[in-house]
């Protein structure tokens, strides 16, 4: 008697990984491997032109080594022997935070308009939003150099109108220029997730709020904003996480006052030839950002939000 040979079925989890494998390979090669390399590197040390591969915590110790004479920056004492890392870390976090707040403050109304006011040609509006991406990031940063520069658009414009006599020097090469540039570069990324979360809100919920006595503003605070929070939080993280470590923008428009932690890392790796210390700094930065993000998500109750949007 012959019975049909049972077809070998892959278990679901294996089939899932098989489908994921191309993406997983790319991720492993470009993300996991460099991070692991960086992690290993941070426990080695630089001796002249060579790298000493014996395990050491010296790099991490250097970043937090206390000093009896604290360095004061912006009125805040930094009691470290190597204070520049901590100062730039704090400065980068603050600058990114400001840029993130500015981005969300500008992107939210745009997304709101798109979700609630635009009724026709929505696709066209969304395409228009992507226009900044049609040029490279570098060019967009350079464009701000032209706008804000000594002989830039703003200065020559104001001069020809007779409002100012000499070009304003405070426009470029400072933290504000960095924040403006970062905000502009990232805003287009944030409109879409906010838009999606607004678009998903059932319109009858808004009518119900009105029906129960809410004015437009009350309704916004009590229904629209909380229900769009998941997308808005995602958008904020999308800006905050990558901008902390950004080094192109501070290098091009930041000047000496606008340096960020990424600038220091680049210095350590390339000019000061101390890759292990740079690696340790990068790992610490990642840990700090991860910690801040986790704390933030916990504070806003993100897991609860996800549960109910299911």
């Amino acid at each position: 008697m012959t019975s049909p040979k049972p077809r070998r079925q892959w278990p679901d989890w294996l089939a899932g990984y098989a489908l994921l494998s191309p993406a997983l390979l790319v991720m492993a090669a470009t993300l996991a491997a460099p991070v692991i390399a960086l992690f290993v590197l941070s426990f080695w040390s630089q001796t002249g032109f060579d790298i000493d591969r014996s395990f050491t915590l010296a790099n991490y110790w250097k970043l937090i080594e206390p000093s009896s004479e604290p360095m004061v920056w912006m009125g805040i004492p930094f009691p470290f022997a190597y204070p520049v890392a901590a100062i730039l870390m704090l400065k980068s976090l603050v600058m990114s935070l400001v840029a993130t707040v500015v981005v969300i403050a500008m992107a939210y109304p745009m997304a709101y308009f798109l979700a609630f006011r635009v009724t026709r040609h929505k696709a066209l509006w969304i395409i228009l939003l992507t226009i900044p991406f049609w040029t490279s990031y570098l060019l967009r940063v350079f464009a701000w150099k032209i706008v804000l520069g000594y002989n830039g658009a703003i200065n020559t414009g104001l001069k020809s109108l007779g409002i100012i006599e000499a070009p304003l020097e405070f426009l470029l090469y400072n933290p504000i220029a960095v924040m403006i540039t970062l905000a502009h570069a990232w805003i287009a990324f944030t409109v879409l997730p906010i838009y999606v979360s607004l678009e998903k809100i059932d319109r009858s919920l808004l009518e119900a709020a009105t029906d129960l006595g809410d004015s437009r503003w009350q309704r916004f605070w009590r229904v629209t904003l909380p229900l769009s929070a998941p997308g808005t939080i995602a958008a904020a993280l999308l800006v905050f996480i990558p901008t902390v470590g950004d080094y192109v923008t501070p290098t091009l428009v930041g000047g000496p006052g606008g340096t960020m932690i990424g600038t220091l890392m680049q210095e350590l790796f390339l000019r000061q030839d101390n890759a292990p210390l740079g690696a340790a700094l990068a790992i610490v930065m990642m840990a700090i950002i991860a910690g801040i993000v986790a704390l933030f998500l916990w504070a806003v109750g993100y897991s609860k939000m996800r549960e109910r949007s299911r």
């Binding site: 059932d202 009858s204 009518e207 119900a208 129960l212 006595g213 809410d214």
Partner: peptide, 30 residues
Amino acid sequence: NHRPTNMVFQSYAIFPHLNVGENIGYGLRN
């Protein structure tokens, strides 16, 4: 929002971010 009417919606329009008590008390805040 100023009419002496209240509505039960076809989709019920229960606020997903509020619990049952908060949903029912929603209009009383005003």
